[in-house]
Amino acid sequence: MTLIGIIFYGFLAIVAIVSAVAMLLNRSAIYSALFLVLNFATIAVLYLALGAPFIAFTQVTVYAGAIMILFLFVIALLGAEKLSGHEPIKGQRTMAIVLGLIFVVELVLFLIFRNQGIQPMLALTQDFASPQKIGIAMFTQYLLPFEVVAFILLSATIGAIVLTRVEKPARLGAARGKK
């Protein structure tokens, strides 16, 4: 691994962690969302490095382009950037941080002691994750999950519409019905 590579990956990792921390700490939900977008973009680059270009661009399209935009949209729509008031649960903050630290330590220990795969990243063939291969796998081996996911999406769409629907005044509805 070259020095450039280490610098490159280290830089990306730091950006990812810092953006995540910033998302965590920022008081404004809009900034949180933006930092999260930055995090996603960084991860997308890492995906490229891990030989997953399709996933990388899907990540940008779906997460950054759709999901986070929806977040921004809702935050702006509701005007819910900031909350007032204090932490109402006693000990929540301390406990959370303590547990988080233990968790990280555990995971790191796990990586050190349990994962034999402290292996170098593998060089992948050009078409390891080509759209064709992903498509073939998805429509043959994983056809059932694919259909299930499609169904989940459909039901989520309907669910979202039903949840946010405001009952229209009867007059308007009647006029529309006549037309």
Partner: peptide, 20 residues
């Protein structure tokens, strides 16, 4: 809700300790 999540996380941490 966050209090409940805290207990869930505590559970995960304990399970991980066991696994370690």
């Amino acid at each position: 809700v966050r209090s409940y999540v805290l207990s869930i996380v505590a559970g995960i941490v304990i399970i991980l300790i066991y696994l370690l």
